[in-house]
C-alpha cells in the first residue's frame, strides 16, 4: 500500500510539473526560446495568492484568479521588455537574458518579501479520500492537482485545435514567416502564448505551495527546471507530451525519494534528462526538426 500512495503522490506532483511544463513547451514551440524565468513566475504567483488569500482575506478561488491576472501581466511585460527586443539575436543572448530575468524575479522577491520563508495556507478545502479502509489516504491537494491539470491539458488542446488564436499559435510555431504572410499577427500570438503560460504558472504556484507549503524566493527555481526536464522528456512543443513527461518525472522523483535516497532524488531526475537527450533528444512525442542550410 505504501507503493500505491507513493505512486499517487508522484502522479499528483507530476500533474503540477505538467502544468508548469505547458508554459515551457508552448513558449519553446512558438518563440523558440527557453524561458528560464517561468519557474520564478510560479513563485511570484504563489506570493500573490498568499497576499490576496491569507493577508487580504479573499476566498481561495478569487485569490488564485487575482494571481492569474497578476502573472499574466508579469509574463506579458517580461516578454515585451526583455525578450521582444532580442527576437533577431543569437540564442545565447536570449538565454542569458532569460537567466537574467529569472535572477531578477528571485531577487526582487527577496527584497520585497524578505529571506524568511512564509507558511502558505492551502487553497484546497476538499476533504481527503480514504481507500482500502484508510490504508491509502489521498489528500485534497493531491486529488485537486490531478483533476485541475487534466482539465487544463484538455482545455488547452481544444483551444489550440478549435479556436482561431489557437490555430494562429500552431501556425507561428510551424513557420513564423509564412504565418505572417498569411495574416497572422506574430507579435500578438507570442504575447498570447506568454499570457497563457504565465496564467497557468499562477495556478501551478497555488497547487505547488498547497502541497508543499513553504514559500520563499527560490521556491519556483527547482520545480521550474524539473518541469523543463518534463517538457523535454515528453517532447518539447507537444501539449500531451508535457502531461506525460510531467507525470513520469513526478513519479520518478517520488519513487526515487522513497526507495533510493532522499538526497539523490533531484540527481535521479536530472539523470533521466541526460539519458533522454542521449538516446531520444526529441522526447516521447516530439517531432524531429532537420536543419536547413
Amino acid at each position: 500500500m505504501g507503493f500505491l500512495s507513493n505512486l499517487i503522490n508522484g502522479i499528483s506532483l507530476g500533474s503540477i510539473y505538467a502544468v508548469i511544463a505547458l508554459g515551457y513547451t508552448m513558449v519553446y514551440g512558438i518563440a523558440k526560446m527557453l524561458n528560464f524565468a517561468h519557474g520564478d513566475v510560479i513563485m511570484i504567483g504563489a506570493y500573490v495568492v498568499y497576499l490576496a488569500g491569507s493577508k487580504a482575506g479573499l476566498p481561495p478561488v478569487a485569490a488564485v484568479l487575482v494571481a492569474m491576472v497578476a502573472c499574466t501581466a508579469l509574463g506579458v511585460s517580461i516578454e515585451k521588455i526583455a525578450y521582444k527586443p532580442l527576437r533577431q539575436a543569437t540564442s545565447l543572448a536570449v538565454l542569458i537574458t532569460a537567466i537574467g530575468v529569472s535572477y531578477f524575479l528571485q531577487n526582487i522577491a527577496l527584497v520585497i518579501f524578505g529571506a524568511n520563508p512564509v507558511n502558505f495556507k492551502s487553497v484546497v478545502s476538499i476533504p481527503a479520500i480514504k481507500l482500502f479502509d484508510g490504508q491509502v489516504v489521498i489528500s485534497g491537494e493531491t486529488s485537486t492537482a490531478i483533476v485541475v491539470s487534466l482539465i487544463i491539458v484538455i482545455a488547452l488542446s481544444l483551444f489550440i485545435k478549435k479556436t482561431k488564436s489557437g490555430r494562429a499559435m500552431l501556425a507561428v510555431s510551424e513557420d513564423k514567416g509564412a504565418a505572417q504572410l498569411m495574416g497572422v499577427n506574430v507579435n500578438r500570438t507570442i504575447s498570447l502564448t506568454f499570457a497563457i503560460g504565465s496564467a497557468l504558472a499562477a495556478i501551478a504556484g497555488a497547487l505547488l505551495c498547497s502541497a508543499y507549503p513553504i514559500l520563499s524566493n527560490t521556491t519556483g527555481a527547482m520545480p521550474g527546471i524539473k518541469a523543463f526536464v518534463a517538457a523535454v522528456f515528453g517532447g518539447i512543443g507537444s501539449i500531451p507530451g508535457a502531461m506525460i513527461g510531467g507525470i513520469l518525472i513526478g513519479v520518478i522523483e517520488i519513487l526515487g525519494r522513497a526507495y533510493i535516497s532522499t538526497q539523490l532524488a533531484d540527481a535521479i531526475v536530472f539523470g533521466v534528462l541526460i539519458l533522454v537527450l542521449m538516446f531520444k533528444p526529441t522526447g516521447i512525442l516530439g517531432k524531429k526538426i532537420s536543419e536547413k542550410v
Binding site: A82, I96, T97, I99, G100, V101, Y103, F104, Q106, N107, I108, L110, V111
Partner: peptide, 8 residues
Amino acid sequence: LFYAVILI
C-alpha cells in the same frame, strides 16, 4: 538584483 539588471 543589481547583477540581474546588469545582465539584462
